[in-house]
Design a protein around this nucleic acid. Structure first.
Length: 269
DNA sequence: CTGAGCACCTGAGGGC
DNA sequence: TGCCCTCAGGTGCTCA
């Protein structure tokens, strides 16, 4: 489900909900594992701690306390929301109990999500990640260095979290459409100006999506239950057989990097 | 080292 | 209504 804009939207919602720095009273695991087994004892070591901030790094949410970090990845179908005890469903796997009977519930039908404990950001998986797309580190020199020896399509590189974080299958197609570059173009063959264009459009597309509250395809919801609106601004994703809004050409699709990929063969060279 | 393919899991939607 | 198939915002493993 969620790429950077969706995770950022959830993060901002949680920040707001937890802005009074409430105390994490109890971590309740309603099953032992998601994608991985969850470290119950380490997570319980955070009980009694104030949540000082909710942050995002890549597609991870980070609940920060003085004693360590509770980190959460939404996988494909994960969501956090405020929910009462009466409305629990079978895919509600974790409950964070706060003071004032506030309950944050993690729902994840496919269980590709992650809930884990980390002492700090200077351990994996954070040490394996590329720069944030909005950071100065994500610049032409860096990107050229990363891509110069890659024979794989630029779409693969954009989705590689070691190159730059936060871009997944939807935004890779949307970014490359805006940049006017075909997803199957060889990474190492792109010119500096094209790389700069990719950087600019990455930021522009992600920013526009954050403003729209992310994209809701099936089940993405904010912590307050609202849905995202950016899917209404998609130019190519999911639009095979429709016509390009820019030139009228039929949008094409193909499996690239193992996932369905969309582009306009006239607008993208 | 890279890249391709598959595995993990459930639910929605289409075709019959 | 129901069955069977395909597909879905991610990532990490194995194999060539």
């Amino acid at each position: 489900m969620p790429e950077l804009p969706e995770v950022e939207t959830v993060c901002r919602g949680l920040q707001k909900i937890l802005s009074k720095q409430p105390v994490l009273r109890r971590v309740e695991l309603r099953r032992a594992d998601l994608r991985n087994e969850m470290p119950l004892l380490k997570l319980q070591s955070l009980e009694g701690q104030k949540v000082l901030a909710v942050k995002r790094r890549a597609k991870y949410l980070i609940f920060e306390t003085k004693k360590g970090l509770l980190i959460s990845h939404l996988g494909m179908t994960g969501s956090w929301r405020v929910e009462s005890a009466e409305n629990m469903g079978k895919h509600d796997h974790v409950v964070l109990h706060f003071g004032s009977s506030l309950r944050l519930v993690f729902r994840d039908p496919r269980r590709f999500g992650i809930l884990d404990f980390k002492k700090s950001l200077s351990e994996p998986p954070f040490t394996e990640m590329g720069p944030e797309p909005f950071s100065d580190e994500f610049n032409v020199d860096y990107l050229r260095q990363q891509l110069k020896k890659r024979a794989s399509p630029i779409k693969n590189a954009l989705m590689d979290q070691r190159v730059v974080v936060g871009i997944g299958n939807i935004y890779a197609s949307e970014i490359l459409f805006e940049a006017g570059i075909r997803p199957q173009r060889r990474s190492g063959q792109l010119k500096a100006q094209q790389l700069q264009n990719i950087i600019d459009k990455t930021r522009e597309v992600l920013e526009r999506s954050i403003v729209a509250g992310g994209s809701t395809l099936q089940d993405f919801v904010h912590a307050d239950g609202e849905v995202g609106e950016f899917q209404d601004q998609f130019k190519v994703y999911g639009k095979s057989k429709e016509n390009c809004s820019c030139c009228g050409q039929k949008i094409r699709s193909q499996i690239i990097a193992g996932r369905n990929t969309f582009w306009c063969s006239k607008c993208q060279g």
